[in-house]
Simulated assay, not measured.
Amino acid sequence: MVGQPGLKRGSIEQACTTWHRATDHMDGVRAVRTRKAVSRMRSDLARFRARGLRCVAELDERGRDFLAGVRTQPHPEKRRTTGSR
């Protein structure tokens, strides 16, 4: 999975950034494989939810919305860079 290397190194913030970028690119894709990847991401985040990390809460919400079929907003980092071009 995309963010797992960051998790293995203990960098949840880096893993969240990587997952946000991947989720930005998944917007509109409704393949079974994509849904499984997002479900796995949420599963991997479960152990971090209790820590109250903002990046985990935001990513988990995006994953939940994605699985519910709700269009999500791009990650704030992407919105900043897109407007500056």
Rank of each mutant, 00 (worst) to 15 (best):
M1T: 00
V2M: 06
V2F: 04
V2L: 08
Q4W: 03
P5S: 01
P5H: 02
G6V: 08
G6A: 09
G6R: 04
L7A: 04
L7D: 01
R9T: 12
R9I: 13
R9A: 15
G10A: 12
G10D: 06
G10P: 09
S11Y: 02
S11W: 00
A15V: 06
T17M: 14
T17K: 13
T18P: 03
T18I: 15
T18V: 15
H20P: 02
H20E: 14
H20A: 14
T23A: 14
D24E: 10
D24Q: 08
H25D: 12
H25L: 13
H25M: 12
D27F: 11
D27C: 15
D27V: 14
A31Q: 10
V32N: 12
V32G: 10
R33H: 09
T34N: 10
R35N: 07
R35C: 11
A37N: 03
A37I: 05
V38S: 02
V38D: 02
S39Q: 05
R40L: 11
R42F: 03
S43K: 03
S43W: 01
D44W: 01
D44F: 04
L45S: 01
R47C: 10
R47Y: 00
R47Q: 09
R49D: 02
A50I: 06
A50V: 07
G52Q: 04
C55T: 08
V56G: 04
V56L: 10
V56T: 05
A57L: 08
L59W: 04
L59T: 07
D60I: 05
E61F: 05
E61Q: 12
E61A: 15
G63V: 10
G63P: 12
D65W: 03
D65P: 01
F66S: 04
L67D: 08
L67A: 13
A68M: 14
V70I: 15
R71L: 15
T72I: 15
T72P: 09
T72Q: 14
H75D: 13
H75N: 11
E77H: 04
R79N: 03
R79I: 07
R80N: 04
R80V: 09
T81R: 10
T81A: 09
T82C: 04
T82V: 08
G83W: 00
S84M: 06
R85G: 08
R85T: 03
R85L: 09
